[in-house]
């Protein structure tokens, strides 16, 4: 990391602060365990030979492809995690049914919109998870991510009015809240309670719609 990027990270309220050695060690252990689990799943049988060979492979993989520093400050809370997973499955089914229905309907061209949603927790991990989950739930697809401001640009399909767009914006923030409640740190959860940051000015909207 260069000196310049460290300075900018300190000036903009530190969404991704530098890692302490302890965090780094924990990340590494998590990554090794995850890779071993995948390795064992690939082989399909749990044996010492598989675990040890998995350990060797995991260490080589991590040495050759080091992971970017990810700050995981919270801990996994079981109940909110369960709530997130259940809601996610439900959303996935609804999304699929909706798209399938849209596809089979005749004489109807779905209208869409591109909206900006500034997230309240701007850590890399939260941005990534929210973006991933968002792409799989009803009517939304990530188009662009602005890492410096923590803003997701989302393509929404099958919207008919401005009210629906606003409702959708709220549902994105609710999804983020579910993720932060599941794995965020206490500090991040506090930030959820604060009022949402201002949405971008409507000047851009008019320009986009007028084209």
């Amino acid at each position: 990391m260069s000196a310049e990027s460290t300075v900018t990270q300190e000036t903009i309220e530190q969404p991704n602060p530098p890692l302490t050695p302890r965090d780094r060690r924990r990340n590494k252990v998590t990554a090794v365990i995850g890779l071993i689990v995948i390795w064992v799943l690939l082989w399909g049988t749990l044996s010492w030979a598989n675990i040890l060979s998995g350990l060797v492979v995991a260490l080589i993989v991590l040495a050759v492809f080091p992971l970017p520093p990810v700050k995981f400050s919270g801990r996994v809370r079981l109940l909110p995690s369960l709530r997130f997973v259940l809601r996610f499955c439900y959303d996935l089914v609804v999304a699929s049914a909706e798209i399938a229905w849209l596809a089979l309907r005749f004489g109807h061209t779905p209208r869409s919109a591109i909206i900006a949603v500034p997230l309240r927790v701007t850590s890399d991990l939260n941005l990534t998870l929210t973006a991933e989950a968002l792409s799989l739930v009803p009517g939304s697809l990530i188009l662009e991510v602005d890492r410096s401001t923590g803003t997701l640009y989302v393509h929404v399909i099958n919207v008919r009015s401005r009210e629906e767009v606003e409702r959708f914006r709220r549902s994105v923030l609710e999804l983020e809240a579910r993720i932060v409640n599941a794995i965020g740190s206490p500090e991040e959860r506090r930030r959820l309670a604060e009022p949402a940051p201002n949405t971008p000015s409507t000047a851009a909207d008019v320009e986009g719609a007028a084209r």
């Binding site: 061209t109 900006a116 662009e144 971008p200 851009a204 909207d205 320009e207 986009g208 719609a209």
Partner: peptide, 17 residues
């Protein structure tokens, strides 16, 4: 077909960043 495009005003800045 787009109701609104809130990315249009920001795309250049993001690409530059």
């Amino acid at each position: 077909l787009l109701l609104t495009d809130e990315l249009a005003a920001h795309i250049d800045r993001i690409t530059q960043d």
